[in-house]
Amino acid sequence: MAHGHNSKEKVVFVGDSRVKKGSMVNIPPDFTAFPGKSEAFIPYFLLKEWMVGVVVLVGFLVLTIAHPAPLGYPADPMNAAFIPMPDWYFLFMYQLLKYPYVAGDYVVLGVMGIPGLAFGALLLAPFLDTGKERRFYRRPIASALMLLSLISVVYLTKVSWDHYQGQLEATGTKPEHIIREEKAREAYEKGQPAPSVVKRAKPIAIVAEDDPALELMKQNNCLSCHASDLNGNSGIPALRGIGDQFTKEELANVVTNGNGNMPAFKDKLSAAEIDQIATWLSKQKKAE
């Protein structure tokens, strides 16, 4: 080793590293200062905590099985009748903003003033309540403020929830996840599959599929790029519904002269054939 252990040195390093040898010995502090029987965290104390945990876990799992997570209908921004509702633990703040003296012109008080004061005070509680006393009944101001806040939070939440229930009743609406559940149960009782609420866009149908123009297009390799089901490829437009986008003249022009990647067909096809194809393509409109 490059250097031996010299007790005259001010800093003593561990081994040949630059890690200082600390004076702290890794012996956990004991709790002899506290009365009663202390015990080691693992495994003795953790086992007891785990017993409490198991009680909570069983209750939690019973809840998850008894009440599936709610799911309504897919978001529809055009739905004007939907009554918006935040999660229950935000209701007190939501309700607060409904009072006239913290909304409208005074909204700053509602979104910043009162919540800022309340949460700011909570965040900085140890610096506001600096006394040595820990028992809650010996520090009446802190405890009273906390109790007052608790009561207001519970009250605001309750008012907000009752208001929501009243709104539901007045408008005769049922929450969507409940309607969905009822419909699924009805279908199940009738032995039918659950009604699907996920809408998929229907493919656009081909108009006049037995027209000879389609056969003509197959012979001229149109479908090798536009796909045999006429749905197109990446960068190549689908021919289904193309009549909604272009007129017959425009289509005839593209087939005759080409456009971008589309080759010109004026040498391969006669004008009559191009007209036949363009006529057929212009008929490819989405069914209403």
């Binding site: 890794n26 009663g36 029987k37 015990e39 905590e49 409490v52």
Partner: peptide, 28 residues
């Protein structure tokens, strides 16, 4: 030792004082 072997005092132990379950909320 640091993580597992430290002593836990009696006043937070629900096996000794049932009311000490309030000390379990953090762990929960």
């Amino acid at each position: 030792r640091d993580v597992a072997d430290h002593e836990v005092p009696e006043h937070v132990n629900p096996a000794h004082h049932f009311s000490a379950f309030v000390y379990c909320f953090g762990g929960l």
